[in-house]
Amino acid sequence: MSNPVHKKSDFIERSILSALAFLKDATLSEEYANRKGLLQSLDPRFKTISFFAFLVTAVSLKNVVLIGTLYGLCLLLAFLSSIPVRHFLVRTLLFIPLFSLCIVLPTLFSIVTPGEAVWSFNILGISAVITRPGFDGALLFVVRIATSVSLVVLLSLTTRHSELLKVLRVFGVPPIFVLTVSMSYRYLYLFATMVENIFTAVKSRVGVVSHQRHGQNIVAWNIANTWNRTTQMSEEVYMAMLSRGYTGEPRLLSAFQATPKDWVWLLGAVIICASLFYRGYTL
């Protein structure tokens, strides 16, 4: 029989552990970036520029079919980059377009967007009318969001985060910013593991059942403990940086090597974007 006290007291712990597990699996594993595939084989600079161009195109186009074409291209690239399309669709389509749909829901109706009525119905005696301009606008918004999010997810899935950070440097982002972000990312995993271990250690001593109030105390202690250890570790890491010659102005590796394949890819991306823009202009 389930214990309601146990369930309540476990809620925060389970939430934290689930969040940590998601963080480690989804954000920090670079499984797809390490696979062999089309996008993985490209120079990150060229890949980022081309995806930026795709993104600008998706945001600028006003034709659903043309944006849909770009979305189709995105799925094709995912397939050619050894990313299971089903996994990719679940990751991109399930949540974000749903949320965007909630945002655009009011614009479907004549009260916000007047125009030709497509469908009318009554809710609790109140007449609601979906209009053509409202429907078209909402569809364009959702498709645009889905395409943009898919492009960004595809770029992040197929590129190691260290390379993405390097690309930021190429685009003129100050090295100190890049170093700080990369270090935060690096230690996120360490602290996620540390918090997990603390919970396991607590569980091994107090058992799985604890009173709700006691459970809250444990979580509070863990937060304080993690904060202390974070502060201590940041001081030690700074010492380790000083020990290797850091004086406040970081110098980082910037080696990238472009191949003819990268130039062909970039040219192809530019042609696709220009064609979509031209088609959008002539329609």
Binding site: S162, S182, R186, V237, M241, Y246, R251, L252
Partner: peptide, 19 residues
């Protein structure tokens, strides 16, 4: 873990000489 603060092993080894 204190000494290896860069996003990749290559960059960690390069950090000292570069500074």
């Amino acid at each position: 873990d204190i000494q290896l603060f860069c996003p990749s092993v290559r960059e960690d080894i390069a950090f000292g000489p570069l500074q």
